[in-house]
């Protein structure tokens, strides 16, 4: 079943993230992909995440496709202008890639090529509009194309952004521009997330809650301090601390599983997007404990 059909079927959709490596050695990544095969509705492949130069998302999407996984192509606007983006979208389409996640992208300042010229010729909302045009057989300038794309396009949203209102206004723009599904920034406070869902449910889009695996109390504190829009409540940090160094990761897996279970059982959203950030081999354990396998 395709990613899009999975939503339509009403099942609780599960995706996970795979980060292409830096360099040509893809053994470990392929091993992780193999572990995830058959368990997920789609695998999300990052696009030079955190502005750190790596293998391009499209190449890895194609490899995953050949392995029998359903890839979601992440596309940021940081490194390509409107010609490059459209050209890559057409390329992805003929490679058989069906899903695209449109984002603006972290600034080069965050990455390992700080001297790079940031592009941002267009941004997330406009990129969604571009995908819409290509799906309708025209490029963004209205020029007729020979054959159109058939993308299922999504976007991201930060439910705990502060201030929240401009973030929600942008969410609405993304919906208007054609986003069909959203994956959220990591959420740890389900009650707060329910508030966001009350708003999001007004729109005809599918929402995947972002689940980032907590690997240590230090990681939680770091995210609270440095990652915009992420707020790990103190009781979760205490829970991980109490487990000690040895038990921290296992407790993190438990927390992720518990949250997923609650999101599913209470039908809070349409699915989850699991970001294990380097611990992709733990995704099956999270799913198992959440009762998804």
């Amino acid at each position: 079943m395709s990613f899009k059909n999975a939503f339509d079927s009403g099942k609780f959709v599960v995706t996970a993230e795979v980060g292409p490596p830096k360099g040509t050695d893809i053994k470990e990544m392929l091993h992780h992909a193999e572990m995830l095969k058959g368990k997920l509705d789609a695998v999300n492949v990052t696009d030079n995440q955190s502005a750190v130069m790596r293998i391009c998302s499209m190449a890895i999407c194609k490899l995953l496709l050949d392995m029998g996984l359903e890839p979601i192509l992440q596309m940021t606007c940081r490194d390509r202008n409107r010609i490059g983006l459209q050209s890559d979208l057409l390329g992805a389409s003929v490679l058989g890639i069906k899903n695209v996640l449109c984002m603006t992208g972290d600034h080069p300042n965050a990455g390992d090529h700080k001297e790079a010229k940031p592009v941002y010729d267009v941004e997330s909302v406009q990129l969604l509009g571009i995908v819409n045009s290509l799906n309708n057989g025209k490029d963004m300038m209205g020029n007729e194309m020979k054959g159109s794309t058939d993308f299922f396009q999504g976007a991201v949203v930060t439910p705990e952004a502060n201030p929240l209102e401009p973030q929600l206004m942008k969410f609405e723009k993304k919906v208007k521009a054609g986003a069909k599904f959203f994956q959220t920034q990591a959420i740890y406070d389900i009650e707060k997330f329910k508030e966001f869902m009350k708003f999001a449910k007004k729109f005809p889009v599918k929402i995947l809650a972002g689940i980032v695996l907590l690997k240590s109390a230090g990681m939680a504190n770091y995210m609270n301090k440095f990652v915009p829009g992420i707020r790990v409540p103190q009781d979760l940090i205490d829970e991980i601390k109490a487990a000690g160094k040895e038990g921290a990761l296992d407790t993190g897996i438990n927390i992720a599983a518990r949250h997923i279970k609650q999101l599913k059982e209470e039908k809070i959203c349409d699915g989850v997007h699991i970001m294990a950030i380097g611990a992709e081999d733990k995704v099956p354990a999270i799913m198992e404990r959440a009762g998804l396998l």
């Binding site: 940081r78 984002m103 603006t104 972290d106 600034h107 300042n109 940031p118 941002y120 941004e123 997330s124 909302v125 406009q126 991201v156 930060t158 952004a161 502060n162 401009p166 973030q167 206004m169 942008k170 723009k173 920034q185 915009p228 829009g229």
Partner: peptide, 13 residues
């Protein structure tokens, strides 16, 4: 820094 035209990105904090 990104010259965005449609509102804040996810990096606003």
């Amino acid at each position: 820094p990104k010259g965005l035209l449609n509102g804040p990105c996810g990096g606003t904090n």
